[in-house]
Design a protein around this nucleic acid. Structure first.
Lengths: 341, 341
DNA sequence: GGGCGCATTGCATCCGAATGCAATGCGCCT
DNA sequence: AGGCGCATTGCATTCGGATGCAATGCGCCC
């Protein structure tokens, strides 16, 4: 009945001081009970924990972060979360497994990055994983701020930044090789992504290079924006430009490829792969559905996410750790959108 | 050259004290320059801002959060981020637009929620949006902690908790009505989601009720796990159990429905919608692709996300604001997986 | 029993920004 | 000139937990 037991009536959540008072020990003791490896006797720990339970105390991560200069938060920047949920999902789960929290930044048209960074710096994140295009000048900011950064699927030559990527050019080589092994193609279309997408550029250039090596000259190009509909529109535009359809269409990602397949089959009255072969890139789940069974390069998302996370944490824990670039090979999925024989 | 200008050589990022010293003013003045509406003269603001630029100062949100008891962070809990990226994307962008940050928690099988909550409480988030199943006892925690909570698409009767949902039962009614308007069905299959999914339960019950009302007795049920493959497997199991296929299949979500459509078409040699009509739920992008053009209920994700965000922020800003439940009607998309005539 | 050493515990301080209150200054009016 | 009032500014304190250092205590050995 004393005012003593009524702490719960207080409006505020219990703090380590409340627990300390309740248990009759010092605040430091309480703090130490939550630090793994700290010097605390068994008796003390039990005593404190009993009070902790009773009051429902949870350490305040904000206060802790202030003094330790560690927020245990990592910013994850993605452009178009809705298109590549697997990446975010993998990253987030792997980080969570290591008790690191994800502060999410989903970009719109790769836009107003400045504002995003402003927020990121304010929140004292321990590190950043970016699956979006950053300007070199923005990357330099990270050095100044001493914040580890890992780029996901965006690599920069000549800049010392950690990155994890899928080898886009090599993947396209495999796809082109698949196409020519299975049949002859003398007229090929390439549907790229948005003009400012480096990944798209790498993919289309990779394909183009291999086609040239193989002596295939008749290559026509179109651009989309990675969406299903843009794939449909691109193939329409292509077929308006020339009377004879190309025998193969190489798309910068799976979604556009699926748009192309559907448009060809349902509106342009062409058979895939009978009349036209189509290949994509990414290894999206839906690309493997029976309606498509798309030939594509599957990115090893799990390995890449694991690599990104472990590289980042490595650098967070170990200030001197130098940047490193890791490149993974994609896996060819032959699918049935490529004409055989 | 004095030691004075060398503050940048210090290992640490500049603080408001550094700015204050550099500008020859007090720390409070600096602080006030970052608080909208604070009393600061134009001269002072310019003077401070010059130093801010020069030193590259950014306020430390962690420290600010400690004193203001506002982290400006909201936890978003989703089960299966990879399946419903649109929801997360919408929520995240709308929150970002209001300068609120998203701390992401992606659940695995709706599992170890206790650990997730432990983390959430520690991080002093201002509120939580949960698109996952919570136990009533966990919901009560929110009251104790005085943390506003908005449930997304999970409603609880008899519990005073804010929620935004799509009317599942009404949606199923519309789908059943669509089926019977377009043709007669005396044998219907329902493929539900995982047994512990409340949403799935509401949807299947809704469909069942309407079927009963219409006098359709022959209803067979199967369960999947919301995935494409589980839809395929479910329809296979169904057709093994009985010789005559049902004339309609009602699926608890679009992905399973697409699995069903594909399995029927490509492996079971049945025509959709000629032999079997199929309907789903959600309004997934891919369900509208030409290969499927699935009949479904489209959830108004944008409205729902907006509602969730504004309800949450309302309650954050206004402690007394009572919980509220909002239910949106889904929009019927007739699609072409339902037999006409 | 005395002494040594390690394990525990508490004290005091710090992290960086926000804010109530008091002090200062400026403009304006009489 | 003197005085009043509002706008600015600075001072001191606060948020909640972590940690270096000193103090205490306990066990063990000779």
């Amino acid at each position: 009945m004393g005012t003593d037991n009524n702490e719960r009536s207080s409006n505020r959540l219990p703090t380590s001081y409340d627990v300390a008072r309740h248990a009759g020990v010092s605040q430091s003791a309480v703090s130490r009970c939550f630090k793994p490896g700290a010097s605390v006797s068994k008796k003390m720990r039990e005593r404190v924990m009993r009070s902790v339970e009773e009051l429902g105390y949870r350490p305040n991560a904000i206060a802790r972060g202030l003094i330790t200069r560690r927020s245990n938060m990592v910013a994850v920047i993605v452009s178009n979360l809705r298109y590549y949920p697997e990446v975010l999902s993998e990253l987030s789960r792997r980080l969570a497994a290591r008790d690191v929290h994800v502060l999410l930044f989903d970009l719109d048209q790769e836009s107003d990055l400045a504002a995003v960074f402003d927020q990121i710096w304010q929140y004292q994140v321990d590190g950043v994983i970016a699956a979006a295009h950053l300007e070199p000048q923005q990357i330099k900011q990270f050095e100044k701020r001493r914040t580890p950064l890992v780029m996901y699927n965006r690599s920069y030559q000549d800049i010392g930044v950690s990155s994890v990527s899928c080898d886009q050019a090599e993947g396209e080589r495999k796809l082109v090789d698949l196409l020519v092994e299975q049949g002859s193609h003398d007229s090929v279309a390439i549907i790229g992504g948005p003009p400012d997408s480096v990944v798209s550029m790498q993919r289309t250039e990779g394909a183009l290079t291999r086609l040239r090596e193989l002596g295939i000259q008749d290559v026509i190009r179109e651009a989309g924006d990675y969406s299903y509909d843009s794939g449909r529109h691109a193939i329409r535009r292509l077929l308006q430009k020339r009377d004879v359809p190309p025998t193969a269409v190489i798309c910068a990602n799976d979604r556009m490829a699926m748009g192309v397949v559907d448009e060809l089959r349902f509106h342009l009255d062409l058979d895939v792969p009978g009349d036209v072969s189509v290949v994509g890139f990414d290894g999206a789940r839906s690309a493997q559905w029976l309606s498509y069974d798309l030939a594509t390069i599957e990115q090893p998302v799990e390995s890449m996410a694991e690599a990104a996370v472990s590289m980042l944490l490595q650098r967070i824990d170990n200030d001197g750790h130098p940047p490193e670039k890791r490149t993974f090979s994609g896996v060819l999925r032959a699918g049935s959108t490529v004409r055989a024989g």
